[in-house]
Design a protein around this nucleic acid. Structure first.
Lengths: 168, 168
DNA sequence: ATAAAGTTTCAATAATTTTTGAAAGTTTAA
DNA sequence: TTAAACTTTCAAAAATTATTGAAACTTTAT
């Protein structure tokens, strides 16, 4: 396969994966484009390469900065802003894990803890089942949380060698 | 908090979490409802409790069966179909991991492997950056894949004790 | 064979999410 | 200060996704 075709295919695949995981397709595509670009790109270039509007490009770039996945760059003697992506895939994974944990897992953990204080009749099957479900989910979520915390602090090589060694 | 309020709150939170992770909100809510219900429920009861239409309930229940998260039950001497959820949270996590791996990770791995055969000029920065990104993503995805495979086969207690021991 | 009970389908509609594009805002250089 | 270059905002439009509901279908009992 030629480079041009491969790039398009990668951008498309990354966009699809993103949308299946609750990330806006355009955002994932812009990220893909910057990830495989050796140089920082301008808004114009991004708009053109992905055929998106200026407004969309601007908002998407802002969101990506908010996710900690890309940064602005200023070139000496130029008015334009350039954008580039962190190319370290482990950093990307950590960054995504960190943001989703903060935005989604943490609020759910908070609600689960509230729900585990529910009171009712210990003889009522409804009550028994509810409490057990909450307790079990809480335990699982707690373990996921601990593992993510470790991942956020860890070096890639250490993390995978540890995990894969255990699972051999 | 009282049981009735807690149930509503749980169903709402589960629905929200689902939608943030690319799972239809109603589907997550129906799953939540069955998860905390000690008895199997009929389509009628689900429709009523969540205020959804018959068509929606039917399609959602079918999808949940497709995900391996709920099952039909037939009660002796009754025409109606009852639905109940697997209450084992570890099974649920494995089932979701299994389905998402099959539907999303595996296709992406396939594309990444195709893309890693791209050919071009070894001196071209575009080419170099592209190949490196694909290679790195491939490696990470491969490790995730191996870990998921292990998880799919593992018992909950073994899995978490192993993972958390390493990360102590 | 028929009718009641229950289930499934899917075109139409509603709700939600994403995108556009033009106007407003900002920064820089002369 | 002015105007050109560039960025941001956001209401309106488009695209996508979810839901409804009524008709068609299936199963069971008589």
């Amino acid at each position: 396969m030629e480079l041009a075709a491969a790039k398009l295919k990668f951008i498309e695949a990354w966009g699809k994966l993103g949308s299946e995981w609750g990330i806006n397709r355009t955002m994932a595509q812009v990220h893909a484009l910057l990830l495989i670009s050796p140089e920082a790109l301008t808004t114009e270039e991004i708009m053109e390469q992905l055929s998106i509007s200026r407004g969309n490009a601007n908002m998407t770039l802002r969101d990506l900065i908010g996710w900690g996945l890309i940064e602005k760059q200023h070139k000496a003697g130029e008015r334009k802003e350039y954008f580039f992506a962190d190319k370290d895939v482990w950093n990307i994974a950590r960054q995504v894990a960190k943001e989703r944990k903060k935005r989604e897992l943490d609020p759910v953990l908070k609600i689960l803890n509230e729900l585990s204080t529910v009171n009712g009749d210990e003889k009522d099957p409804e009550f028994i089942t509810f409490k057990k479900s909450i307790k079990d989910i809480n335990k699982l979520a707690g373990n996921v949380d601990k593992t993510l915390e470790t991942m956020l602090k860890a070096e890639e090589s250490w993390f995978w060698s540890s995990v894969l060694k255990v699972f051999k």
